[in-house]
Structures are given as structure tokens and as C-alpha cells.
Design a protein around this nucleic acid. Structure first.
Length: 751
RNA sequence: UGGGGUAUCGCCAAGCGGUAAGGCCUCGGUUUUUGGUACCGAUAUUCGGGGGUUCGAAUCCCUCUACCCCAUCCA
């Protein structure tokens, strides 16, 4: 677990510490109506990760309340995804559909409590009655039905006596709620549909808002973690559990931001469109952000998990850069995977001064990867190199083979280009070269310096393979639809050659093809006759970046900051205006503070009351407008634990220099929490401030002696550090030193 | 236009009144038989804007702005 906990873990930890729950139970609750993608992976990592970190449990629950869209094949895919990522759910997989009988009993209970009713308006009418975002809705006349009638109707709905849409069961909450979700949400609808699991037993099915919270409760879930779009649903979640007066403990819902990645789409709808429109080859197409896709492409579970870890968990909508994901897979594979040579775009090279053949011995791993293993690489006079590694007219800083520049064949010899052979169209078809017999890798006596070593394969022994080179599916950073698809997202290299050991020995499933990237033996299409490799991700390529004319990615076109226009401030009423004027003119308050007080009746009356006790208009105004205002935001004056008189006393203590403003804050917090007289609090806690330089100076000296580096930095001009020293001294005195005095003394000492 | 959220570097993200963490990306450099890796170094005088409180504000107060979610019998 990392040092900095995300906000969810902070909540869990506090709940455990406070004894709210004895054990943490989370759950991953997907609806089995689509293939899991990397966004699900984030949720899996959070839910299962929290359970693991706090010795709790995590359930896997299929939220299967909509029989018309759900399917068993998706539950299998979901289970696979969790397992593949390395997590184990608690006991068996759970299904909301298993709770249907229980849920139904809860529904009946709500009806009996008069908190739910059967409504019989049609969809159109219901929408009309719901009102709008700014206008209240109206309850339909069926809201007045008796408990008996509701119970009877509900039972008959369940039995299937009515047609789809004829009735629904709704919670009776508030048709004028500002939160639209609370305008009598639907609990059950009639659906004569076959459920893949519950069969044909039910003619009614619960909706999310009813089924989810209760399923959490039934399972004993403590922290119900979901994505941001459910924030508005939290009110219903709480309403259902509270209204039913269930025995505690009950779960609470917490929301985090869903994952977005640039150059990809994540919505079920868009993913489905890609698959059904055959823009990709199935749900496991390696270009898709589905778990199945990443898996087929060759991503490791470790890399996905690590990605989820590095992106963090927060509540701000965000889009993570794909490069972050790419980094994670490279980082993982770099330490694990054998290096082999594969030529993607072969160019024939004939070594005219070499005769016969030999087997070179080469390690599968570079020196910096602490793994063992070697293979033999056949070498003879006819080899292939990559077309990219030869240039007749090289650009500046080109390190590879040219008519003027030698290059080393990795693990083999240094060669020199002697002749370039072209076809009738001027295309290079072959290089005639000579090798240096003294330059054999590992026993080089040639003394020749080369700029680089390139991959190659022996023409006779190399195996022909298919290499599928994947690029990002979309050409736009924030793709909308099909029109944003990258036409070059898949290139099939049918003429690639690989060194024989990869096929005959198969030392691994994943490889680094030297200087190209990481590749994966396709788990489905690969055969010994026709090996197929998928490109997982390329190596970082600082040469390509240099050659690229396009601005490097990560550098967005600079958006100039447009000046921010400020909106109109609501004008003051006549009374407020008069008050404001009096505060400014007579009491000499500054405009801002006067404005805050004048506009808020609660504050201004509190202020006047305080003033009546102790006449220090400016200091009290500041205290009221800043500190008291915070407490009065969502409270009434009579709910406060402190009084105007006590605030007056507090300000007096500051005015008299008994306490500093810093201590005053501390005292105020105490008053907010437990009430009490400020003078007594100060006495009880011994908070009287220390202003005597004789007492303070030694402490300053000690702090200065302990932080020579910062003293040097300060003297070098980093004046911000003054705050650091003041802070240290204050800390040493338990906050009691007079900060103003400390400030002056420190400044003087550090001159 | 009502309600609920969110704004800290190009992208994520810590920070909760006392020196603006870290990762990715980018840019230099060292090492290198991968233009890889590793390693060093650079990159926010400033936290959406403007005010206020304070010795001291990304953090507290006021205000404005921008973006996201909500009016499926989806989840």
C-alpha cells in the first residue's frame, strides 16, 4: 500500500478505527450485459484492493435485475476478468436475482408503511408528471391508493396478471424534490421476460435503486463504492435503507471518478458498435480496451494492476494519457521477457567474404536483466536486416548501416556495405556487404567502432511469421465515433522473419523483439506451421521522435488563457445597503467584511449581539465574517454550541494580547465542538501565549542550529523559508509562542 | 434555469494554516553490442479568477467563472 492513501481508503480506515464496522466488506457489482473493460479493472482493483489492504472481504455480485439485456456469457467474462487480475471473491459469486424473494418482502414492507404505492399512469404521463429540473412534479392520483389496494395490486403484478407497463411500484418520497431522482422513484416494473438465472418465475423485476442498496445490505457490505454518476442516487440509497429501519450496521455509498483514457472509448454502447459493426474483430480484439482485448494483445495482469495503482483514485473527472498504460506494460515486461531477433521488413544482405555457416551463442537477456538462458543463432552469408536499418542517403545522426558507415550485426560481426542493388524501379532489393572476421561478438579484436548494433536473421534458418502490428484504435485524442477511427490501427506483416530458437524452443510467450518492441504469441491463431505474434507495445524510440515532424505527443497545442469574465454580483437590498454603509462609515469595517455581514441576516444579528458585549468592531467583524460564518453555513444560531458573548470574550483575549490569533483558532474549534467559555479553555489548556524574547530566543537558536541547509537557502534569497522557521519555533512551543514576535526575531537573526 | 459534484504542471495526483510530494510525458547528460533499460539533472515564485481574514493561505471566509452528472419502467 502506498504511503498516501486515496480518499476511499482514508474513509475505510477511519470507519474501522471509529468502530463503525468491525470488518470491511466491499463488492464489485457489474451488470452482466457487456464485456468488462479497463474501467472495470479500476473498480476491481479498488474494491478487491481495499478488502485486501484492510483484511476484509470483497464479493463479486452480478447486478442482474434487467433480464432483457443480460446474458450468462457476460457473467463468465466478468468472472474471468476478476480471476485473471488475480483476485478471489468471497465465497460464491452472488447474484441480485438470488435476492428477489427477499427484495419483494422489503417492497411489501414499504407498501405497508405507506412509503410505496402502485402507480398506473403510462410512461408518457409519468414523464410529464415528474416535472422538470426547475419545476416541481405532481404525484399521480394513484398515489392515494390504500395500503390494501397497493398490496393486492403488487401481488397481482408479481403473479403476472398485468401486461408490461401497466403498473409500477414507486417509492412515496417527494414529487417536488430538487434532486430529480427523489421524485417517487420506481421500485419495480412489470416485465414478462425470461431471466437467464431466475427463469420465468418473476413477472416483476426490481430497479437498480431498489435492488442495489438492499443487496449491499443483505450481503453485509460496509462500503458501497461506485462511480460519480451515481451521486444523485445516493439519496435514494439512504432513503430505502433508513425508511426500512433495518438493523445496523448498514452500508454507505461512496463515489469515485470513472476511468477515461485518451485515444480510446470506454462506453458499452460505443464498444458494442465497434464489435457489431465489425470495425474490430470481436470483443477480444487487441485494439479494444476490454480485459479480453488487453489479454489477447499480451498485456500482463500485473501491468494493468500497476496502472490502476499509479493513476490513483479521486473525484475529479479525468482522462489518463495512454502513455501511462504503455509505460506500465513496458516496465513489467522489461524485467521479465527474453530478447530475440525478428526482422519485420526484410532486406536481403549478402556477405560476399563469408563462407559456410556457424552457430552463435547468445543470451536471451541483456546484462541488466538478471535472468539466465541462451540460445544458438545460425549465421551464414545470406541474412536479412530491416529496411529501416539501411539508408543510402542518411539523415544527420543516423547510426545504422550506410554506404559509408559500418554497423554491427547484434551478437555477430561488423559489416561494411559494398554495393547497393536496385530493381528497375530504383527500389533497393539487396545489399552486398563484407564482414570483418576479427569482429565476432565477444571476441572482437578488430578495433572498429560502430555507432549501433542491429537485429538480423539468417535467411536459410529463419522462420517466416505473421506479425500483427497494432496502433491506437482512434486517431483523435477524444474520439467521438466511427469517423475518428485510425485507419492504420492494424498492420499485418506477412513477410517477417524470426530466429529459429523462438519457434523451436519457445522459451516464453512474450518476447522483446530487439529494437522493435514487446510481442506476444497469439493464444488463438498461433500454430507451429504459421506462428503469429501480436505487438503489445513498442520500445520507446527517441530516434523516431527526432525524425518526426509532428510535435511530440504529450505536447498539446498551447491553449492561450482567455481572460475570465466575472459575472454580475446580486445587488443588495435597501436594508442591506444601509447596514453596509453603517458598517463601513461608522465602524470602519473594510468593504468585503461589511458586505459579508450586511448580506447575511444571521451574521449581522450575531455580529451586533457580540458588539453589544464588547466594543471592538473590526476584530469582531473579522471573526464573525470568517470563522462564525463557516459554522452558520448550514446551521441556525440556536444550534451553535457557543454564544455571541463567548465570541466577544474570545476577541477580547486576542485584543489584550493574552492569546495569539493562532491560539484563538484552536480555542474557537474547541468552542464549536464542545462549547465552553474561552477564558476557561485557555486556562485549562495553558494556552497563554509566550511573547517574551528571552524565552523565545533560545528556541529560535535551536531551530536555526538544526536546519543549516535551510538557513543557507534562506540567506541565498529563499525568503519563503521564513514561514518554515516560524512554523518550527511555534511547533516547539506547542503553538504558544507569539507568532508575530517570533517572526520579527527570526527575521532579525537570519539577516 | 433547480439540485449534486469537480478545478493543484502537457496528463494523472499528494497536500487539510508553516519549504508546492510522486508518477507519466517532455528536454538535457552519463552508462550501454537494443537510439531500450538503469542512473543523474531540468521543468508550478504558484494551486480556475478576484477580493478578504492571518505574522504566514493551495488549505479558512466571500464572490465570480468553467467543466461534469441528474427529468430510462437502464445500471
Amino acid at each position: 500500500m502506498s504511503e498516501h492513501k486515496d480518499f476511499l481508503r482514508t474513509i475505510v480506515k477511519e470507519d474501522l478505527k471509529s468502530g463503525k464496522y468491525k470488518e470491511v466488506i466491499t463488492r464489485f457489482p457489474p451488470e452482466p450485459n457487456g464485456f468488462p473493460h479497463i474501467g472495470h479493472a479500476k473498480s476491481i482493483a479498488i474494491n478487491f484492493g481495499i478488502a485486501r489492504d484492510y483484511q476484509g472481504r470483497c464479493n463479486l455480485r452480478m447486478d442482474d435485475t434487467n433480464p432483457t439485456t443480460e446474458d450468462i456469457k457476460y457473467v463468465e467474462a466478468l468472472k474471468d476478468a476478476v480471476k485473471w487480475l488475480g483476485f478471489e471473491w468471497d465465497q460464491d459469486v452472488r447474484y441480485t436475482s438470488d435476492y428477489f424473494p427477499e427484495l419483494y418482502e422489503y417492497a411489501k414492507q414499504l407498501v405497508k408503511m405507506g412509503k410505496a404505492y402502485v402507480d398506473s399512469v403510462n410512461e408518457e404521463e409519468m414523464r410529464l408528471l415528474r416535472g422538470t429540473i426547475t419545476e416541481a412534479g405532481t404525484r399521480s392520483k394513484y398515489g392515494e391508493r390504500s395500503v390494501e389496494e397497493n398490496l393486492d395490486l403488487l401481488e397481482r403484478m408479481k403473479k403476472g396478471e398485468f401486461k408490461d407497463g401497466e403498473h409500477v411500484l414507486r417509492a412515496k418520497i417527494d414529487m417536488s424534490a430538487a434532486n430529480m431522482k427523489m421524485r417517487d422513484p420506481i421500485l419495480y416494473r412489470i416485465k414478462h421476460a425470461h431471466h437467464y438465472r431466475a427463469g420465468d418465475e418473476w413477472a416483476i423485476y426490481p430497479l437498480y435503486d431498489f435492488g442495489h442498496c438492499l443487496s449491499d445490505y443483505i450481503e453485509g457490505v460496509t462500503h458501497s463504492i461506485c462511480t460519480l454518476e451515481f451521486e444523485n442516487n445516493r439519496d435514494i440509497y439512504d432513503w430505502v435503507l433508513d425508511t426500512l429501519e433495518l438493523t445496523p450496521p448498514r452500508p454507505y455509498q461512496h463515489e469515485f471518478a470513472r476511468l477515461g483514457i485518451n485515444y480510446t472509448v470506454m462506453s458499452k454502447r460505443k464498444l458494442l458498435e465497434l464489435v457489431e459493426g465489425n470495425y474490430v474483430n470481436g470483443w477480444d480484439d487487441p485494439r479494444l480496451p476490454t480485459i479480453a482485448g488487453y489479454r489477447r494483445r499480451g498485456y500482463t495482469p500485473e501491468s494493468i494492476l500497476n496502472f490502476c495503482d499509479t493513476i490513483g483514485v479521486a473525484k475529479a473527472n479525468s482522462t489518463v494519457d495512454v502513455s501511462q498504460l504503455e509505460f506500465c506494460i513496458r516496465d513489467d515486461l522489461n524485467a521479465k521477457v527474453p530478447r530475440v531477433m525478428c526482422v519485420l521488413n526484410p532486406l536481403k544482405v549478402t556477405i560476399t567474404n563469408y563462407e559456410g555457416s556457424e552457430n552463435l551463442i547468445a543470451s536471451y537477456y541483456p546484462e541488466d536483466v538478471p535472468k539466465e538462458g541462451t540460445r544458438e543463432i545460425p549465421f551464414s552469408s545470406t541474412i536479412y536486416i530491416d529496411r529501416e536499418d539501411f539508408s543510402e542517403n542518411p539523415p544527420k545522426d543516423y547510426f545504422r548501416l550506410t554506404p559509408q558507415q559500418n554497423v554491427r550485426l547484434k551478437h555477430a560481426y561488423i559489416i561494411t556495405c559494398k554495393e547497393v542493388i536496385k530493381d528497375n524501379n530504383g527500389n533497393i532489393v539487396e545489399i552486398k556487404a563484407e564482414y570483418n572476421p576479427d569482429s565476432k561478438s565477444g571476441e572482437d579484436r578488430s578495433g572498429i567502432k560502430v555507432k549501433s548494433a542491429i537485429q538480423w536473421v539468417d535467411a536459410k534458418s529463419a522462420k517466416k511469421v505473421e506479425v500483427r502490428v497494432y496502433d491506437r484504435l482512434y486517431k483523435n485524442e477524444m474520439p467521438e465515433g466511427i469517423e475518428d477511427l485510425n485507419p492504420d490501427s492494424l498492420k499485418i506483416m506477412t513477410d517477417a522473419y524470426i530466429e529459429p530458437a523462438v519457434i523451436t524452443q519457445r522459451p516464453d510467450e512474450r518476447f522483446q523483439f530487439e529494437r522493435e518492441g514487446y510481442f506476444y504469441a497469439d493464444p488463438i491463431d498461433y500454430t507451429n506451421e504459421k506462428p503469429v505474434f501480436n505487438k503489445i507495445v513498442g520500445l520507446k524510440d527517441s530516434w523516431a521522435k527526432k525524425t518526426d515532424v509532428k510535435p511530440a505527443r504529450g505536447q498539446r497545442s498551447s491553449v492561450e488563457k482567455k481572460p475570465q469574465v466575472d459575472g454580475e454580483v446580486v445587488p443588495m437590498s435597501l436594508e442591506e445597503k444601509a447596514l453596509f454603509e453603517r458598517y463601513v462609515q461608522e465602524l470602519k469595517l473594510n468593504d468585503m467584511v461589511a458586505d459579508i455581514l450586511a448580506r447575511d441576516e444571521k451574521l449581522s444579528s450575531f455580529y451586533e449581539a457580540t458588539l453589544f458585549v464588547y466594543n471592538s468592531p473590526v476584530a469582531i467583524a473579522n471573526m464573525v465574517a470568517n470563522e462564525v460564518a463557516r459554522e452558520l453555513k448550514d446551521k441556525e444560531v440556536n444550534e451553535l454550541k457557543f454564544s455571541a458573548t463567548q465570541i466577544a470574550e474570545l476577541v477580547k483575549l486576542i485584543d489584550e494580547d493574552t492569546i495569539s490569533t493562532k491560539i484563538a483558532k484552536q480555542v474557537f474549534e474547541e468552542m464549536v465542538k464542545d462549547g465552553g467559555n474561552p477564558v476557561e479553555i485557555v486556562q485549562a489548556k495553558g494556552l497563554v501565549q509566550i511573547s517574551n524574547p528571552v524565552e523565545i530566543n533560545p528556541i529560535i537558536d535551536a531551530v536555526i542550529a538544526q536546519n543549516p541547509d535551510n538557513v543557507a537557502k534562506f540567506k541565498a534569497g529563499n525568503t519563503k523559508l521564513l514561514g518554515f522557521f516560524v512554523g518550527q519555533v511555534l511547533k516547539a512551543t506547542g503553538g504558544k509562542a507569539n507568532p508575530q514576535v517570533v517572526n520579527e526575531l527570526v527575521a532579525k537573526k537570519l539577516q
